[in-house]
Amino acid sequence: MNETVNVRVFRGDAESGGWRDYAVEVEEGQVVLDVIHRIQATQAPDLAVRWNCKAGKCGSCSAEINGQPRLMCMTRMNLFAPGEPITVAPMKTWPLVRDLVTDVSFNYETAKTIPAFKPRPPEADGFWRMQQEDIERGQEFRKCIECFLCQDVCHVIRDHPANKAAFAGPRFFVRLAELEMHPLDTEDRLELARRDAGVGYCNITKCCTEVCPENIHITDNAIIPLKERVADRYFDPVRWLGGKLFGRRRP
C-alpha cells in the first residue's frame, strides 16, 4: 500500500528557516521517523534529526508533529487521515540548533542540581531489603526515558522562558518524587522542590501527563504528591505544630 504523502518539515536554524514540503513514499507500518529518514536518504542528506533506537526506548527523537509533542519513532503514519497535512517541527521550548535538533542542555544542567540517592546502611550481608510494594511507585518514575517531551509541553517554561531559572520541570519532579518516596533514601529534598525546583509554579494542567510516551502519571503520581509533601512541611500549621511538639518522623 505504498502511497505518496506530503510532509512539511522545518528546515533551518534560529536565525533563518522555514517550512519545506517533501513528497515522500510511505510504506505500510511506517512511522514519522521512517519518513524523515527517507527524506534524508533521497532528498535532503543534511536534514538534521536526532535519533537512536527507533523503538521508543531511548527518547532521542522528540519533535512536534502537527503541533503535538511526540516521539517520531512511535508515531505511525496511519495515525493521519488521508490528505491530512503533516508538519514536523523541532521542540519549541529549547534553543534551536538546526532543523529538528534542539539544544536540550537545560535538562542536563538541571539534573546536576538534584542531590544523589543516599541510602541508609545495608544489612549485614551488604545488601538491602525492600518489598516490591514499596518500590512500585519509584519503578513507575524510573520508566522515564528522558525524551523531555513533558518539559517541552510545559507552558511554565514553554511560554515563559524566563522561568527556566526558577523551575525544574515535570521530568525533575518525577525524579524528586522518586527519590523522596524511595524507602532507603535518607536525603531531604523538599526544600529544593519548593524553593529551587519551583514545584509551586506548576498549575497541574496535566499536559506533561498527556504527552508522556511511557504513560507515567506525572501529575497524579509525582507532582501532586510532591506538592502535598511540600504542603506538609511549609503550608500546614497543624503538621508544623505537631512536628515541633512530637518531633518529625520519617517512616
Binding site: P119, G126, F127, W128, R129, M130, Q131, I135, G138, H182
Partner: peptide
Amino acid sequence: RELEEWGALFDRTNDGRI
C-alpha cells in the same frame, strides 16, 4: 549490589531481596 547502592530499583523477591 553497587547498582542498588546507587539507586537502582530491581524487582524483588517475597523476602525483599533482588
